[in-house]
Write a protein that binds this DNA or RNA. Structure first.
Lengths: 349, 349
DNA sequence: CTGTTAGCGCATTCAC
DNA sequence: GTGAATGCGCTAACAG
């Protein structure tokens, strides 16, 4: 082994070294300028086929991995999209995220993840962090955000999509089903089947406007039908764990006239069915139980859960598409996409 | 309004402008050097309390958001951790991810997400992408990876944790339960309860070593007990959808002697229970059904599913902790953490 | 405790 | 089709 300063020949063998090969080293090894190497990777059309092949072969052999930090800094495009979900432990949001990632990743974008834990304040801080990373776009869950957060977003001119709730006048873009309408439809369904006295069970401490919108829809149809407004209960269990169904016991003890309980989610509704069966509350004869959101368990529990199905994955997909359109300058399409929902009338109500 | 070139006074009012305030502008407005502002943010202890307060107040008022691309480039630390999961639509991996994020985010790290879709090749490409982003660490799912992938990881000297499978000799770090042992234990449990002829149902086209390890554990105990090895079936349904349970019909038609079916997952196992009940296969009298992984549905279906519970969220948490330790230079702890599992003997087997 | 100098690795803008 | 100069915004290392 001769001990000489690094030469082109050596550089070409650097594949066994650290993957800290720089653009410049590739350029030297290939006998071209740095910008040519850059173009071979980002703008192949603007380089002759011959040089391109030559350069790419060398880059490959050297194990060159472009430094996207430097690239993003210089070009002001990070190819990263920040996504804020309340939690990924809940499969619903996992699927939204999956939908968005399935659109964005093939387009060359990476997803930077943030969990708001259902807190608008945390959401705001995540947005700040994302802007620090100079993300090219941001996906938020729901339509209810801190004003400062929307302000910041607007001033930074970062494209933003609100997912999972219909919003006809989004601050930027939005996609989702109307949770108000979903609540109203479910209420109508129950009323049509003879229910007269409702309870609604939400979750304490969660900044989740969707759950509130569902209740408001329910309230509206109660009013319209001349019924008493639903009694509002809140439980502190984490939605998604499926615990907290025992609340139906409390409800019936409080207000025995109640003949229908609507849960803000579906997991807890299933838990409530299970609890009711265990303690001998006849579902649906004595008590109707319904929820929002669907899953295999909702279908397979006995009695099966009457619930509202939302096109979950589509939310992420459409949000991703909206974002891509904007990023590619095609601002032609609508800014707000309304998705539907479906009342799944099963055995529990 | 006077039209004059930007002055310090104006800069201090820039909060209504774009959030493209630079460190230098803050420095000028505060009458200090850029490095001092930098230190106020990243190393407050090395600045006098007086200047710090002064500078931070101004930075705040100007709506300054540090550019982490530039920061990362200059400091060679991105404060980003790349995480590869097969899919986030599956709550199991969602919870692992959640556990990891819950540890990493409070420590100031952001999670860059990648979906491998159960493909080792995709995993490799994601790792490349992550390295391009100069992530400070990488979390992978499972212990089976492309050799080139591990090579690249090692050469880049990027800390890495393999999650969700026990690996006594990880290429870097690892955390998880032994899926082999889990398969063996479940097998023993079933054998002890009189089962003699097994079938195992996996999923086609998935690079998932965990599912294979479970089968191998099962094979071992069958051998040890002098039983025929389990018949191996594969279904093409996406695990997590819960579809594909009809396979038990095929199995019993093929090999009527089979008295126990073990599913690689739990969703499909529940689907199989549901199917069996529907078509009149007596569970567990005629056929035992068991799976891996737990969820409310597994407990609430009738008959309830005998399955193996893994400490899912702990996987993510411990992986996050291992990563943090490494990142903070505390290499004292073990490189591999073994988590346990629990056979949940319920009604289906 | 604070400032100066010198990059980090790449892409943009203009030349040729 | 290719290259040279310049800067993206920040921090490391050293100086004072």
């Amino acid at each position: 082994m001769v001990d000489h300063p690094s030469s082109d020949a050596e550089a070409a063998h650097a594949e066994v070294e650290l993957s800290t090969v720089r653009l410049q080293e590739v350029a030297e090894a290939a006998g071209v300028s740095t910008i040519t190497v850059s173009r071979c990777i980002n703008n192949p059309a603007r380089v002759s086929e011959k040089t391109r092949e030559h350069v790419l072969k060398i880059a490959n052999r050297m194990g060159y991995i472009p430094n996207r930090l430097a690239s993003s800094l210089a070009s002001a495009r990070s190819m990263v999209i920040g996504v804020v979900v309340p939690t990924i432990a809940n499969p619903i949001h996992g699927m939204v995220l999956q939908g968005a990632a399935d659109i964005l990743e093939p387009a060359g974008y990476q997803v930077l993840l943030g969990n708001s834990h259902f807190s608008k304040q945390s959401e705001f801080e995540l947005v700040r962090t994302f802007l620090g990373h100079r993300v090219d776009g941001i996906l938020l869950t729901g339509r209810d955000h801190l004003e400062e957060c929307l302000d910041l977003l607007a001033r930074s001119r970062t494209p933003m999509v609100e997912m999972f709730d219909y919003n006809p006048e989004p601050s930027d873009m939005a996609v989702g089903s109307s949770n108000f309408d979903a609540g109203a439809s479910l209420g109508q369904y129950l009323i049509a089947r003879g229910r007269r006295q409702f309870a609604y069970v939400g979750h304490t401490g969660l900044d989740d406007s969707r759950m509130i919108a569902r209740l408001q829809g329910l309230i509206k149809v109660c009013e319209a039908a001349g019924l008493a407004p639903p009694r509002h209960y809140e439980i502190s269990s984490d939605p998604g764990t499926g615990t907290g169904g025992e609340v139906v016991g409390t409800i019936l003890r409080d207000v025995p006239e109640i003949d229908a309980v609507v849960f803000a989610g579906h997991q807890v509704a299933v838990g409530a069915i299970r609890y009711s069966v265990d303690v001998g509350i006849a579902v649906p004869q004595r008590l109707a139980i319904a929820g929002f959101g669907d899953s295999p368990i909702a279908k397979w529990i006995t009695p099966s859960l009457t619930t509202v199905r939302f096109p979950v994955r589509e939310n992420g997909i459409e949000a991703g598409k909206l974002m891509l359109w904007r990023l590619q300058g095609k601002q032609c399409k609508q800014r707000s996409i309304r998705l539907g929902f479906e009342i799944l009338g099963r055995d529990s109500a």
